[in-house]
Structures are given as C-alpha cells and as structure tokens.
C-alpha cells in the first residue's frame, strides 16, 4: 500500500560527523563525544546556553532536532504542530549511571539535582519542545533495535488523526562513547515515500 505521507528531511549524527539529507555538514575527527557535540553545537551558531546544562542524550537529540528544524524556517512564535516520536535501546542509562555513582556511598552521598532530572529518556523531548514551543504529542520508546515499523505506525497514526501536521521521529541512542542519532521529518510534504524500505535505507546511509 502506498503511503500518503513523505519524508521531507533527515539527519544523522554518528561517528564524529553530522550529515543533513545525506550531505556531511560537520566533522570533528578523533574527538570524544563531549568535545564533538560541543564543537558541532558551536558550529551551528545556536545561541542557547541551556544546551550546556543538558545530559549527553539530550544534547545529541536536541542538536539533531535543532539542525533539522532550523532548515524548516519555522516561526517559533507560532504553535508549530510537529509531534515527536523518538526511540532508542539504552534509554537514559548513561545518565542513570552518573546518578548512581553520586549515591553509591553513604559517606559521600551528594546526588546532583541537575543530573537527576535527566534520568528519563523522554526529557530530551521536553528540551526540544521548549526550544521550539511545541505543545504537541510526544513519546519515547525503548526497543532492542531500530524499529522502522513502529515509527511508521505511530507517526502515521498521529497524522491520520490530525494530532499533528508533521512528525519528527527516529532513533537517538547514547551509551558512553557509543552514540547515534537518526531523525526524520514526515508529513504530506516531501518526495520520498514514508515506508519501511525507505526508512531503513536512510537509517543505514
């Protein structure tokens, strides 16, 4: 069955590089994640100091979404009807471990509120929603592997029921130095049909 929805734009952040719609827009080789994501953020010239307060998963998700949404020329003062459907495997484990270390010993028990607030994966959706003033549906799913079928079912449902005019969806995985973001925007716009084969092809690009 042909889909009535299309993929209008997509982004990858992995292996120390950022690519938008298949074109590499930033590379920082031989760099650990924290240095890479900071350099990638600064290269975008986004003035948003809260970025530096985010945990690593939120930095990854926020930057991927920000680069992609910036190209949509949105007016952030309008209510942009863009839903968010994200997924990954490690949930917020990277930050959960940081929090656990802070509460490991009774005689050195100083949990950080700024770390604790990121011990849920869907916090990154909130960060994106705050920046772009999205008052839309959002959800974060945990899967063993990238799940194109679920992304299709969920985003098409949101579009079919007029819960959103477009959906930003994909996979944002981070555990230590292993990270990967793949997000795409689906709506009636665009030319690439929103189907499993196309999503998997883009994901593996």
């Amino acid at each position: 069955m042909n889909s009535k929805y299309n993929i209008s734009s997509y982004i990858h952040i992995k292996n120390n590089q950022v690519s938008l719609n298949g074109s590499v827009i930033f590379i920082e080789e031989h760099s650990i994640f924290t240095n890479f994501i900071k350099a990638a953020y600064k290269a975008q010239n986004t003035k948003y100091p809260k970025f530096f307060k985010m945990d690593n998963l939120s930095k990854l998700a926020f930057l991927a979404a920000d680069i992609l949404l910036k190209k949509q020329n949105l007016n952030v003062e309008n209510n942009n009807n863009i839903a968010l459907v994200f997924s990954n495997k490690a949930s917020s484990l990277d930050t959960d471990i940081s929090h656990q270390k802070a509460i490991q010993h009774k005689d050195n028990y100083f949990p950080s509120p700024a770390v604790f607030v990121y011990t849920l994966p869907n916090i990154c959706l909130g960060e994106i929603s705050i920046k772009y003033k999205l008052y839309t549906e959002n959800s974060f799913f945990i899967f063993e592997h990238f799940n194109a079928e679920h992304l299709i079912a969920n985003s098409n449902s949101l579009l079919d029921t007029n819960k959103a005019e477009s959906v930003l969806c994909g996979w944002v995985e981070l555990e230590g130095e292993n990270y990967e973001a793949f997000l795409y925007l689906v709506s009636k716009e665009g030319t690439l049909e929103h189907n499993k084969q196309n999503i998997i092809t883009l994901y593996n690009t």
Binding site: K53, F110, S112, P113, A114, V117
Partner: peptide, 13 residues
C-alpha cells in the same frame, strides 16, 4: 530552580 538545588548541594558538599 535546578541551579538553586545545585547550590544547596554545593553548600553541603
């Protein structure tokens, strides 16, 4: 507000 909580932890630690 989260910064305020961090400052409280800093005073303690």
């Amino acid at each position: 507000s989260i910064d305020a909580l961090e400052l409280i932890v800093m005073l303690d630690k």
